[in-house]
């Protein structure tokens, strides 16, 4: 299973994903520029990504709690999601997304 991640500098990375992993964990473990400071507890918004328009319907909309967390970043778009809340499954094989500036490490 693969996901394609565009980093903040515009470079594409094809990452091997594993079913049941959170997208944030894949991005983090591959060493891309993602802070993910709460570790996936839906308690920060530093794993913020933009889902490619072809994938927004498959990935779905954020929960109310996730929307609340998105209030703490200044670069939200209609396709914003927190990548710790996207669970990889076969349906998401080939998922494309872009890292938000607000997810970058210092």
């Amino acid at each position: 299973m693969k996901i394609v991640v565009t980093d903040q500098a515009g470079a594409d990375h094809e990452l091997e994903g594993l079913e049941g992993w959170r997208v944030m964990e894949v991005i983090r473990d591959w060493g891309l520029n993602i802070k993910a400071e709460c570790g996936g507890a839906l308690s920060c918004a530093t794993c913020h990504v933009y889902v490619d328009k072809d994938w927004t319907a498959v990935v779905g909309a954020p929960s109310e709690e996730e929307e609340d967390m998105l209030d703490s970043v200044g670069d939200v778009r209609p396709n914003s999601r927190l990548s710790c809340q996207i669970l990889l499954s076969d349906a998401l094989d080939g998922l494309k997304l872009t890292l938000a500036l607000s997810a970058a490490k210092d």
Binding site: E37, S72, V73, G74, D75, A100, L101, S102
Partner: peptide, 12 residues
């Protein structure tokens, strides 16, 4: 921990 908690700077 992860350092000191400081105000989040908006990406502007």
């Amino acid at each position: 921990g992860g350092g000191s908690f400081q105000p989040k700077r908006p990406p502007v």
